[in-house]
């Protein structure tokens, strides 16, 4: 939950939360979705021309913009033949009345790290492909910008990051410097990882919680998968899951992957 400093609780969300619990007792949701349905998804890529890659994802009311920038940097001592990937996330104050300007919040750091983990574990980007010359390699900066928050920024951010990376072009490198105006080849994306986030409210488990559902959830689980493997997981909040519940959620995550992957990268066969 996002703390609204100086305001000990949001009473209106609490009232909405009570209603959500009531509905879930009858297997219903406020927007008449089934318990394991995603909200509407739409993705636009290559929308920012100064970024080497970009995508905007709408997942219901949640809107995430992802920009990818490439920059030549010194290679690291222990990995002299490869580049680097840095994922950051910002919960912008324009996205919610509860977000404040300031240093990165724990929530934004968690989001960035969970997305980073899935991309890395899924070997989506071949870091060796980023090598330029002795001592130089591209660093790929993936910046996630939450523009409107209506719950479940994990899944939306995964899609935004994967779609932006899939649309990224690598600039020309000449005489020891990048020529940012000229882009010469597409960034190779070897694998697509998508995330599916669940929330537990009472004894019910729902997929893709919106902001009101998140407010009342006791537990949350994000499962990032590719076609074959689970690549990253993150449980949030203080509640718990049974092993059976986890197995069921993993099954659904794999089931949803085919659909999500098509949104992110319509042509790919991963």
């Amino acid at each position: 939950m996002f703390t609204n400093k100086g305001y000990h609780m949001n009473a209106i969300n609490l009232a909405k939360a009570n209603y959500i619990k009531e509905l879930l007792n009858r297997d219903m949701r406020e927007d008449s979705r089934a318990l394991t349905d995603f909200r509407d998804i739409s993705i636009n890529t290559s929308i920012l021309k100064n970024a080497e890659g970009s995508a905007q994802v709408d997942l219901g009311g949640t809107r995430v913009l992802c920009g990818v920038k490439l920059q030549p940097e010194e290679t690291m001592k222990d990995t002299p033949d490869q580049g680097n990937l840095i994922v950051s996330a910002e919960l912008l104050p324009l996205a919610s009345k509860d977000y404040e300007s300031g240093p990165p919040s724990p929530d934004s750091i968690e989001l960035a790290r969970v997305v980073d983990r899935g991309i890395r574990a899924g070997q989506c980007i071949d870091l060796k492909d980023l090598f330029i010359e002795e001592g130089k390699a591209w660093t790929v900066f993936v910046d996630l910008y939450i523009l409107n928050f209506d719950g479940n920024f994990f899944d939306a951010s995964y899609m935004a990051a994967m779609a932006a990376l899939s649309s990224t072009w690598i600039p020309k490198y000449e005489n020891g410097a990048a020529v940012m105006e000229e882009r010469v080849r597409k960034l190779k994306v070897d694998n697509i990882v998508t995330a599916t986030t669940f929330a537990k409210i009472g004894q019910k488990i729902i997929l893709d919680p919106d902001v009101n559902e998140e407010a009342v959830a006791s537990t949350r689980l994000t499962i990032a998968v590719d076609k074959e493997f689970i690549r990253a997981m993150q449980k949030g909040l203080s509640g718990s899951f049974t092993q059976k519940e986890i197995q069921d959620m993993v099954d659904i995550a794999f089931e949803k992957h085919a659909m999500l992957k098509d949104y992110v990268s319509p042509q790919s066969n991963q």
Binding site: N10, A11, I12
Partner: peptide
């Protein structure tokens, strides 16, 4: 229409 936010002895605060 509002939601009770705080209850004190003599005052009920409504959001």
């Amino acid at each position: 229409v509002g939601v009770v936010k705080e209850v004190k002895n003599s005052i009920v605060e409504v959001d």
